[in-house]
């Protein structure tokens, strides 16, 4: 059994975007704050801290989850992935390329969470319907685009990946 008092810290080690990270964390530190702070993963955006908006969505051990609803201390030994694992500016992932081509982002604040969700979902569901993607996106709030271009971009990317 591991234990950490409310005033104490526990050292955790995990993998964040392919890099080994070791850090001392207090029990109440949210994963979202841990990733943005000590891990400098600024692509994890915090929009509500109660699990509704989806902006902080990251992949923990292969599953897309809300980083604001996990404690950093829970990720000891885990593999955490943020938007950084998709692609870089001059070698973008098909999802990223299609988001740009479809004008599926404006302010871009909700985008990293959506990209992680979509990438993870498409691994399990390579041939989604439009309705599937709309349901997937019901777990993310976007206030800029009206969602239609996001649905189009994800469907495009799924098709590209299937080819």
């Amino acid at each position: 059994m591991s234990y950490c008092s409310k005033d104490g810290r526990t050292t955790i080690s995990l993998e964040v975007d392919g890099k080994r990270v070791k850090a001392a964390v207090s029990p109440r530190l949210l994963l979202s704050d841990f990733l943005r702070g000590p891990c400098a993963a600024k692509g994890v955006h915090v929009g509500c801290e109660h699990g509704v908006c989806g902006a902080c969505t990251v992949r923990v051990d292969g599953q897309a989850v809300r980083a604001c609803l996990m404690l950093a201390i829970q990720t000891d030994g885990s593999r955490v992935e943020t938007v950084k694992v998709l692609g870089i500016a001059d070698a973008m992932h098909p999802l990223q390329e299609r988001f740009q081509a479809r004008h599926a982002l404006q302010c871009g604040f909700c985008t990293p969470g959506i990209l992680i969700s979509a990438q993870t979902y498409l691994r399990e569901h390579p041939a989604p319907t439009r309705r599937d993607i709309e349901e997937l996106l019901s777990g993310h709030l976007c206030r800029c685009t009206g969602y239609t271009p996001i649905v189009d971009a994800i469907l495009d990317a799924a098709e590209l990946e299937r080819r």
Binding site: M1, S2, Y3, S5, K6, T10, S26, P27, R28, H50
Partner: peptide, 17 residues
């Protein structure tokens, strides 16, 4: 919106829990 402090236990068996 940050949680109040708490002591954290992560048991490895049901009996511990």
């Amino acid at each position: 919106m940050k949680p109040a402090p708490f002591d954290y236990y992560c048991p490895r068996s049901l009996d511990e829990a």
